[in-house]
């Protein structure tokens, strides 16, 4: 009953293969940047690590497919944004919150508006994700819409609501972007 070349007779899905060196290299090279993106998305270190790990795990399993598209980082960033706004994210967040000590590490080092950073915590995940994609990732509303799987109108309304809550004046109503 040898199936040494072909896949196993009784299993449709084989065992997960060990991750290749290319993937581990990718994690070594880009892990830091991805974690920081996760930090901006989630607002705390614990969630950032959780989000980054989950997305990287999924990338690792899909590596052979993704690599061909040549944009593994885009894949991970998309996964992270989607996870962040998904039910998965909210459930995990609820579970983690109790165990996570408040990290104030950022405050003394933050080059920016500490008060604004704090207020971002009050935003619903989707609104926060839209802001991060727009102002940190520099994506257009169309790109954000595609990435999150929502309409461009939703992106704009979510952004508008979030900006309003944060008392941020929008300089260019047409694009919603600052030059």
């Amino acid at each position: 009953m040898a199936k040494t070349v072909k896949s196993g007779m009784q299993q449709n899905g084989g065992p997960p293969r060990p991750w290749g060196v290319e993937f581990t290299d990718f994690v070594a090279a880009r892990g830091n940047a991805l974690y920081r993106y996760g930090y901006v998305l989630t607002g705390n270190a614990e969630d950032a690590a959780d989000l980054t790990q989950e997305a990287l795990m999924r990338l690792g399993d899909a590596w052979s497919r993704i690599r061909k598209k040549d944009d593994p980082e885009g894949y991970v960033r998309t996964t992270m944004a989607r996870l962040h706004v998904s039910r998965w994210r909210r459930l995990r967040r609820e579970r983690l919150v109790a165990a996570v000590p408040e990290v104030t590490y950022t405050d003394d080092r933050l080059d920016g508006d500490v008060g604004l950073w704090k207020e971002l915590e009050g935003l619903p995940p989707k609104q926060r994700a839209v802001l991060v994609l727009r102002y940190y990732e520099d994506l257009s509303d169309q790109e954000i819409a595609e990435l999150l799987g929502v309409s461009r109108g939703t992106v704009r309304s979510q952004a508008a609501r979030a900006l309003d809550k944060l008392r941020i004046r929008v300089t260019d109503l047409e694009t919603g972007r600052v030059g």
Binding site: T24, V27, A28, G31, Y35, R36, Y37, Y39, V40, A45, A48, A49, T52, Q53, L56, V103, Y105, T106, R109, L110, D111, G112, D113, L116, W117, L131, V132, Y135, Y136, L163, L166, R167, I168, R169, V170, T171, R177, V178
Partner: peptide
């Protein structure tokens, strides 16, 4: 009282100032 540029700067600043992750990512 805030501008979009401030938001962008705050997000970038927070990313730079993120506390180092605990343990090894891989």
């Amino acid at each position: 009282d805030r501008s979009e540029a401030e938001l962008a700067r705050t997000l970038t600043g927070a990313a730079d100032a993120a506390p180092p992750p605990v343990g090894d990512l891989l």
